[in-house]
Simulated assay, not measured.
Amino acid sequence: MISYTFSIITGAFAFVSVMFMLRYKSEKQNTTKLLKEKAELELKVLKSQLNPHFLFNTLNNIYSLSIINSGKTSESVSRLSEILDYVLYKGQNKTVNISDEISIIDDYIELEKLRYDERLKIFKRQKLNSENKIPPLLYLSLVENSFKHGAGKSVGDIEINIEIETDENQSVFRIKNTYSETLKSERESLGLNNIEEQLKIFYENQFEFNVSEIGNWYEVEIITPATE
Rank of each mutant, 00 (worst) to 15 (best):
E101K: 01
K25M: 08
N132C: 15
E188Q: 10
E188F: 06
L111P: 04
F202N: 00
R174T: 07
N30Q: 11
S180K: 10
T73G: 01
L142V: 03
L34E: 14
M19L: 13
F207E: 00
V143R: 05
T58V: 15
R115T: 05
L128D: 00
N57V: 06
E208F: 09
D100P: 06
R79L: 15
G150A: 07
S130R: 08
N216V: 02
G156R: 05
V87A: 14
L183D: 13
L43D: 02
E213K: 11
W217V: 05
T5M: 12
G150R: 01
L41V: 14
K121H: 05
L120N: 00
L128S: 05
N132G: 15
L183P: 07
F6E: 14
S171I: 11
T73L: 10
G152Y: 10
I62C: 04
S76T: 04
T95V: 12
G91W: 01
Y4R: 15
F173H: 00
M1W: 11
S81F: 09
K200Y: 01
I134G: 04
F123T: 12
A151M: 01
S3P: 03
D117S: 10
T95I: 12
D157L: 10
W217C: 05
Y139F: 15
G215I: 01
L88Y: 15
S171Y: 10
D106P: 02
G191V: 02
D117V: 08
V77K: 00
V45Y: 14
G156P: 03
K200T: 01
F173M: 02
L199C: 03
S76G: 15
S99G: 03
E112Y: 02
N194Y: 08
V87L: 15
P225N: 06
Q126M: 09
F20N: 13
Y89D: 15
E118C: 05
L35T: 11
E181N: 13
E75V: 11
K47F: 09
N97Q: 11
V220A: 03
E181W: 08
A14M: 08
S141A: 06
E118Q: 15
L199V: 05
E208Q: 11
K127A: 09
S76H: 03
L114P: 09
A151G: 03
E37S: 11
G11W: 09
I195D: 01
F209P: 07
F6C: 09
I122G: 02
S70W: 05
L190T: 03
E219Y: 00
N210C: 09
N210F: 07
K38I: 10
F20Q: 13
Q49P: 02
P225F: 07
S64L: 13
Q92G: 06
T95W: 06
S74D: 10
I223K: 13
L190I: 02
T58Q: 12
N93Q: 14
L192Y: 00
K90E: 15
I9F: 13
N177E: 04
P135S: 04
S64Y: 07
L65W: 04
T10I: 14
P135T: 05
I109N: 01
E197A: 13
L88D: 09
D107N: 14
Y4W: 07
N216M: 07
E110C: 05
T10V: 12
I175V: 11
Y218F: 14
